[in-house]
Every structure is written in structure tokens, then in C-alpha cells.
Amino acid sequence: MGPVTEHEITVRALFEPSGYPESLVEKLRQAGVPEGAMEIRSPLPLHETGLVRPAPLPLHRIAIIAGLVGLVLGVVVAGGTAILYPIMTGGKPIVAPPVVGIISFETMMLMAIVTTFVTMLIRLRSERRDAVERDPRIDDGLIEVVLSLPSNSVQLQLVQTLLKQAGALEIRHHHATSSIPPGVELDRRTTAGMLVVAWLLCGVPACSRDMQDQSSYQSQEAPRIHSPKGSVPRDSRLLRKSLTTQEELDEGARLFRINCSHCHGRDGTGNGPVVAYLKEQPADLRDPYVQGLSEAALYDTVTYGLAVEGRDVMPAFQGELSAEERHSVVTYVKSLSQP
């Protein structure tokens, strides 16, 4: 039932559960009372026939659709992880199909149950008729028939006789007002307030900074576990061969722009944007001294970085760049001599 309007009158009749005749609703219908204007309130579900026809709500279908959505969600999140990280672990994908099954089963159930519940809530709320308080005697076993009729109709007379005939214990009229009973507005505000507070509380853990403050691994930091000085990864030489000189140069230039140019400058002359903040002037890589160094020496510099008087002035790249990437950069640095 929608909200009651000014021109309506509400008729409420109480019945003993045994005295309530099932034919009453049928008779009221014949008297021209529309389906939406009748309401029966009872302390427990009534399953007899001849009652007001409940407005249909495809709750089953909604539950099934929500379940399917949840299923897809689970498959996407869990299965998607396996697709993003195609790493075989223990002879199976990182998130194996049975696991995707388990996870999507749970998300399916979760979505189905929660959606059913939420749909039900919305339905219950839409039922609410704020203006008419519920008669407490209903909970002691009586059944109430509530009708909303146009206030000056002849129907009213007819309906009352029908109700009396059916054995109503008490018939009352209300000139319906659409005013909301006092407590309700307050309740809404309390609920909203509680939700806001709960939401804010969720943010509290974020105030702690201990994860940021801990000694975590920084980017460009040298690996804490070092491979012995001078050692070269076994697979790098093979990989290096697969690049043509031009490809290697391009790759080297790209890596140089990312990793070196902020210090050494885009052209390698040592005029990068951060130079002003450095204690040591970066080398001009086109300088004959630098160009005179062997490829192995440059590789060594890039791998382990440089320290002047015990202080690091250039970072080590062995954690940042793979062996063949370092080779590419070195090739690029070598090429800087021919302007």
C-alpha cells in the first residue's frame, strides 16, 4: 500500500482468529474495494485461501541471479589472479581450478543470501504505512483488517455492514493524516548517525604509521643479500645474444632514461635535474676518461654503484636491473662517445 492521502479514511476492524471468515475478503472485493486498499495483519503467517493476494515478488529469481553474479565475481577474482600471474607452483597454476571453485562457491552463497536479505528489507520498508500504528492486541492473537477508502463514499456504509456481519469485534475509523509518528524521524537520524560513526571508526587503524616507518626495502637499495663480487648470473650471457646491436642500444637508451638520466642528464653530460642536491657531481659520461674505461669496468660500476670516501654517491643497480639490462645500459653508455 502506498502512503495514505488526505481524502482517505482508514477503517480498521478486529477479529477473533476463529471468527474471521475467509469469505470476507471476497465480499469486500465484490463491494468494489481495490486490492491495494486491503490489508490483513496477523500475529503469524496465515496460509488459508481467500486472503489478500500478495503482490508478487520474484525473490527466488533474484536470489538465483545474485548467486550467479557472485559466482562470476569469485571466478574473476580468483581465476583472474591465476591468469595475471601464470606461475606454475607445485605442478598447478598459482590459483588452481578447484580453488577457484571453492572461492566462487563462497562468493556465490554470500551474494545470494545478502541480496535476498536486502531485497526483503526494501520490500518490508516499502510496505510501511507510517500513519497507522499497529494495534497491540494483534499480538495477543487477533486479526486486523485495514481498509483505506475514499472518505465520502457510499462504499463506506456497505463495507461497515459487511465487517459487522463477518463478526468484527471492533470497528474504528481514522481520518488518515500523512504525518509520521514522532519517534520515527528520530530513529532514522539515530540509525544514520550510528552508521556514520561506524564508518569513521573503520578509518582509525589507518592512523598508525608503523608500516611506513619500518625499515622496509627501498627501491634502488642494494640487495641485502649479495652475490659474491664479480659473479655473473649464469643465464645472462645467453639472453644477451638474442638481441641485435640496434635493439640493445634502444633498450639501453630506454633504461638509461629511466635509471640514470635524472643524475647524468639525458645526454649523459652529467647535468640532470637532481644534480643540485647531490654531494658529488655525476661524471660526464662522454668524458674521454670514462669512455676509456673497459666495458667490464662500466658494468661493474653500474652493478655495484660508486662510493667516495665511504659514502655512496651512485646507487647499485644489481637489484634494480637484470644482468642483461645492465649490459644494454653499458653498451648505450659506450655509444655516447660518437656524437
Binding site: 490489508e39 527466488h60 510496505e127 504505512r129 540509525t191
Partner: peptide
């Protein structure tokens, strides 16, 4: 006031009972 919020405006109409029972019937096996 708590009960008023929690009871969601329940008045015990046919529609409400029907929705509640259907929801219970769906959720129980799940």
C-alpha cells in the same frame, strides 16, 4: 527506539509475512 529501528516497520501484513517466509525458505538451504 532500538526495537523500532530493528523491526523495520513490521506490521504483520500478508505481504510482509509472505516476503519473510519466502526469504527464510531461500536462505535456509543455502
Amino acid at each position: 527506539p532500538l526495537y523500532r529501528v530493528l523491526s523495520l516497520g513490521w506490521t504483520g501484513t500478508q505481504n510482509q509475512w509472505q516476503v519473510l517466509e519466502t526469504a527464510l525458505r531461500i536462505i535456509t538451504p543455502l
